[in-house]
Amino acid sequence: MSHPDGALVVEGLHVGYGEAQVLFDVHLAVPRGRLAACVGRNGAGKTTLLRTIAGFLRPRAGSVRYGSVDLVGRKPYEVARMGIRYVQQDKRVFADLTVRENLRLASYATGDWDWDVVFKYFPRLKGLLDRKGGYLSGGERQMLMIGRALLGRPKVLLIDEPTEGLAPAVVEQLGRVFEELKGQATLLMVEQNLPLVGRVADVVYAVKEGRVVAEITDPDAIRSGAVEAYL
C-alpha cells in the first residue's frame, strides 16, 4: 500500500534481538503533520519500534513506509538523510563538542546552516554556543538534541521519551514546541508523561508486551487519559 500524502505507516512489524522477539505484528499510521504518541510500560517495546523505523534494527517481518518509500533495509544514515530524524532517549549529546559544533555537525549533514529555527524554539541555546555538551543540564541537552534534529526541515521526527527526568518548566516548554512542530513535520513520540500526551497527541497507541493493544483517536478520550486503562 502506498501513502503519497507523506504518512508514516508501520504494518505487521515483527522485531527481535537474537532469539527474543520484542515486537509482534505492530500496525500504526501517523498522518502527515500529526503527532502520534506511543505509551506503555518499560520494556513494552516502544524504543525498539523507534529504532526499527530509524533503520537501526532490521525487522523479521513487516514494513515501514514513509509515503511510497519502504524504509526497511535502509541504513540509519540513509533514513536520516531522507529527513527522518531520531532523537534518542539517553539525552547524551557529543560531550566533547561545544553546542556550536554539535549544531555544525547537523548543519553540514543537512546543508541547512540557518540556526534561527533552533533558536526560535530554544532561545536558551543561543547563549550556550561555546559551552561543551558535557557541561549542559539535562534540559539543555534535550533542547540541543531536538534542535539538532530540526535542522534541514525534517519530514518526520521520532522522539524517544523527551521529558524523562526533566523539570516541569522544561516539560512545559517542550510541550509548546511539540504543539508548534506538529504542522511542520510528522511526529512519532514515545512518552510516559500522560498529561503531556493528552495535551499534544492527535493519536495515541498503547503498547503492551510488544503489541499495539489500543489506538485512540478521539480527542476527548486522548485528553482524558483513557489510554491508561490499556497499560
Binding site: F56, K75, Y77, A80, R81, F94, A95, D96, L97, A109
Partner: peptide, 24 residues
Amino acid sequence: TVFGACCLATKTNEDKVKFLGYHD
C-alpha cells in the same frame, strides 16, 4: 573542521553520528 568534529563524535557516540545522517 566538520570532519574533526565527526571523528570526535564517532568516538563519543557512533549511533548518534548515524542518526545525524553521516556514514560512520
